[in-house]
Design a binder for these strands. Sequence first.
DNA 1: CCGGGACCGTGACGCTTGTCACAACGCCGT
DNA 2: ACGGCGTTGTGACAAGCGTCACGGTCCCGG
Lengths: 232, 232
Amino acid sequence: MSSLVDVLREVPIFAELDARVIALLAARCVPRAVGEGFVLFRAGDPCAGLYVVLEGRVRVFRSSPEGREQTVAVEGPGRPVAELPLFDGGPYPAHAVTTMPSRLAFLPRAEFEHAFRTDPEVAAAVVHALGHRLRHLVQLLETVAFRDVAARLAMLLADYADQSGRSHADGVHFALERTQEELATEIGTARESVSRALKQLATHGLIRSRKGSRFVVAPPAELRDWARRGGM
Amino acid sequence: MSSLVDVLREVPIFAELDARVIALLAARCVPRAVGEGFVLFRAGDPCAGLYVVLEGRVRVFRSSPEGREQTVAVEGPGRPVAELPLFDGGPYPAHAVTTMPSRLAFLPRAEFEHAFRTDPEVAAAVVHALGHRLRHLVQLLETVAFRDVAARLAMLLADYADQSGRSHADGVHFALERTQEELATEIGTARESVSRALKQLATHGLIRSRKGSRFVVAPPAELRDWARRGGM
DNA sequence: CCGGGACCGTGACGCTTGTCACAACGCCGT
DNA sequence: ACGGCGTTGTGACAAGCGTCACGGTCCCGG
């Protein structure tokens, strides 16, 4: 197992900290390997500390009594989970569950709070991350509030294309490791609607090809543009 | 005009700071009186600094090309506006407009950033506020994603009852200074749907009386409960 | 090679809700 | 008192979408 320090240095939220601070944090971290479906916490639980995903994937979501789910975020390697309620003392606002076998680092709340108060760089990094998350949520809220399913899906594909796509002559290529069920919860709709929306995007030439999980789509800008115009 | 220091001390986000820091911030603030409909900023504008509402009301919202609007927050006296993009350097994610004549304090970005980096108390206060906002957004997202209009409205009324209601034997009394049009944008729907949802809540005994802007509603817990259960 | 389970596609149906249209009401200034 | 304007109630209608039902495909293990 490689040194925790090396891993943490790769984590964006900690990237700019100097070696001394990272070592300090790493010493307090509890690494943990878990399987798929491990529950990090549930909505309403008191906040125990900060998780960082080292490997694997964590889905953060809210669920309704009827069983429908709205995922708020999907975090992969190097991303922090649930940094939000560390500060206002409130409970976690959502559930968090691994969607594949994962390795996590856990930093107890007291340790983190101490680092936050003594090192302004830590504080800045956290606020930076919070700002990003907030920005993303506002965006998500807008699309859920007044875009139809096809447009929301186009937005989502644009995000994935941006973050993991490779541009070719015929469009942007990437692998979408999601079931339609998962996509549905990310845009707040039902699985069947995702299926129909995919076909709709294909007929409009926004999805150029789709073989299993391999997608070729139009440039993100074009996708977002189409979504914002209301799909025509 | 009373001293800006006195006003800032009443602002929750600054309340815990010591007198020296408040005086420093106040000295950098630019107070400003504006009419109704004054545009603080528009989505996409680069972030110039932090506004604090001293008096009046500011509505923060996103709008679609077709003209529909989703309000993200409504801020009253003592509340900061747009603290979010100060840090990640990005643009404002939404529009902000006064909905009545207001007095605002404006703190240029550089000043704020300096305070943030030198005083951990400022940083803690900001993160606290951000956390709260994020929590609220997650909640809002959930209701928009899988609650019907009546349930969303019940949630909204519960919030208002909590923050400005007075409890009596027959229910919680408060004045709702909003048009149905404004309510509609707060829960992401159309004005007519609000009208119908109000009637629906009344028949279920959740709104006990409604004369002009004076409302008498069931206890907030009961409202939220009904909304979460899916309205029965 | 077979069987089962997860995932995907698709048709039918009904409910919610956005939209349009219009009437009624209240408030305010002249 | 009157007229106008902003706000509200309500009816009709169509579109979008969630839900149910079912059949198809693919993969993997026995």
